[in-house]
Amino acid sequence: MTETALLSLKKLHTYFLAGKNEGRAVEGVSFDIGSSGSVGLVGESGCGKSVTALSIMRLISSPGRIISGEILFERGGKQVDLLSLSEKEMTKVRGGEISMIFQEPFTALNPVFRVEAQVGEAARLHLGLEGKALQALVMKALYDAGIKEAERVAGSYPHELSGGLRQRVMIAMALISGPKLLIADEPTTALDVTVQAQILDLLAEIRVKRKLSVIMISHDLAIIHRICDSVNIMYSGRIVESSGKEALFKSPLHPYTAGLLKSIPSLSRIEKRLPAIPGNVPDLFDPPAGCRFHPRCPKAMDICKKTEPGESVVEGRMVKCWLYK
């Protein structure tokens, strides 16, 4: 862990227990994020990105459980393991120091409360504001999230707003108490493309302005490229490649990363058929032996089927693949 790390995950294991079986959703994930850094978590659906994020917030609900690992977070100049905090202490972290925004702005807002009440709640809890001061802060938060008609939106119910506005409301709600870290779990997946671009611009702008650290979760490498400095590629509950953004996009090390990059559609490269990675993400309850990716890997060797590769370091980048041993 570097001196400046704001959050540092160490060998996080989160399993889902179903009778005697356990679904190993996250298995030994470690990464650091420095203050005002931005890290991307990339992978297909079901590779453990969201579970990792929810584990950091300690919002994993039964039958899921954080089995082991450490989540070190800087609080008041000290590194504190979030997993050792009491639930009461943890509520101060959530929304106050680490905030999270979600994929579906349509369902992530409570339908029966006005925007004002939902956005203000976090500030009431963490900053102890009330009345006029709270109202003023809510307006400022909405305005900072790029909502021009803050007055109207504040008095609206979520169903009266468009998807883009709702996601801006989510962002206002997440940032109102001035957290140090924002976890964005596929924040633009449910939005249409033009709105996506606006929301990403907003996030990029806020990140710089507030010196906010961001963990961006996405299956879309283009989004990651726009927001993040470094990228962690996840597959079947583990990080298979971790690298700075430029290097990763220029020369991917892991065959899975290469596959993901190839499947980005591009206007300058018109093909009959978009290359896709064949097969599906492995079943968490019954993963393949050896390297989890070998059944789908174009470069699979004999050893890949038997033994799981450890970490290799290539030019300062981490990769888990037998090609680099």
Partner: peptide, 13 residues
């Protein structure tokens, strides 16, 4: 529902 997760993520007890 998702909005309950949102409420928890805000830090509500």
């Amino acid at each position: 529902q998702d909005y309950i997760r949102t409420a928890r993520a805000k830090g509500l007890p």
